[in-house]
Amino acid sequence: MKLMVNGEAREIAATMLAELLAALDYEGDWLATAVNGDLVHKANRAEFQLSDGDRIEILSPMQGG
């Protein structure tokens, strides 16, 4: 399945959002996820089904003003 992950085109076998995070070696409770512009809560990642062409954002705390 073709996905856009943080702006990069990726070919990923995972079908659930939680699987995607694991496949790309993302782990930690400081991460936030959004799919196609909407927040996907941490608790919902395991059941969140991904579709071809989905745009996924994986964000973490960073310096800010």
């Binding site: 992950v5 943080n6 702006g7 790309l24 070696d25 993302y26 930690g28 400081w30 991460l31 936030a32 954002e57 994986i58 964000l59 973490s60 705390p61 960073m62 310096q63 800010g64 003003g65």
Partner: peptide
């Protein structure tokens, strides 16, 4: 203090380190 959210690199720990400091 103000903070933000930015894209995390695959396998990255930048966010964790900053969050721990804050």
């Amino acid at each position: 203090v103000t903070v933000s959210l930015r894209r995390e690199m695959a396998g990255g720990r930048a966010g964790e380190q900053f969050w721990s400091l804050i």
